[in-house]
């Protein structure tokens, strides 16, 4: 475990804490894409299939359970909680996210390291995670005003994978010197998708003004 990966995991955890904070304290999920949250549940379910078959460390197992539990909990809140579900921006969360799942499945069947169920599903989870933020970014562009916690949530979510890229550089140089094209390219695409959000987020933070994405 290197510092970049630890920072990455903590940033990812923090993003989830911020989202839960928003949903639980404000009792609102306005501006949050349910579709992105559902995609993340699929990402975690298909990536952590080895949860009960392979043991790496207490940390690894604990974090997998936290990510699975919180992502499922958030979807439950947005779908079934009597107060929160009323605040879901249903009419604006219109991205056709089933296409993202289909494309990721097809790509995972075509490009993978080994053709076995676990490996193909793990590869699928990497491809899906790379594009899972798209419904959320589209929703942000439609939102007139983006509340601070939502902006912070998306920023932290984008930052975690950027830190993972540093972790991969470190591991390549210092550890196994092996090329891991699939996670690397997926991670680069994922981070690149946040590029313009990062630009507007940092600009709004520097100018102390409300975050606004161009339509």
């Amino acid at each position: 475990m290197n510092l970049f990966r630890l920072l990455g995991d903590m940033t990812h955890l923090l993003s989830i804490v911020v989202l839960l904070l928003k949903i639980r304290t404000v009792k609102s999920c306005a501006g949050i894409s349910l579709k992105t949250q559902e995609l993340y549940v699929i990402v975690f379910l298909t990536r952590y299939l080895d949860l009960f078959t392979k043991y790496y460390s207490v940390y690894n197992t604990a974090m997998k359970l936290v990510f699975l539990g919180t992502s499922i909990g958030i979807v439950w809140y947005m779908r079934y909680h009597k107060v929160v579900k009323q605040t879901y921006s249903k009419d604006e969360d219109t991205f056709k996210h089933y296409f993202l799942i289909l494309l990721s499945i097809i790509l995972a069947l075509l490009i993978h390291r080994a053709f076995d169920v676990i490996e193909v599903l793990w590869t699928f989870s990497l491809y899906l995670e790379a594009v899972a933020i798209l419904p959320q970014l589209v929703l942000l562009q439609k939102s007139r005003n983006i509340d601070t916690l939502t902006g912070d949530y998306v920023f932290l979510l984008g930052a975690y994978r950027a830190l993972y890229i540093l972790n991969w550089v470190y591991r390549f140089l210092m550890e196994n010197h092996k090329f891991r094209w699939i996670p690397w390219i997926s991670g680069l695409v994922q981070t690149a998708l946040y590029a313009d959000f990062f630009y507007y987020y940092i600009k709004s933070w520097k100018n102390r003004e409300k975050l606004k994405l161009p339509a």
Binding site: D9, D50, W122, Y164, N167, N176
Partner: peptide
């Protein structure tokens, strides 16, 4: 033995 591409990451 761990496969070369260990899945020890989250």
């Amino acid at each position: 033995a761990q496969d070369p591409f260990t899945k020890d990451e989250l």
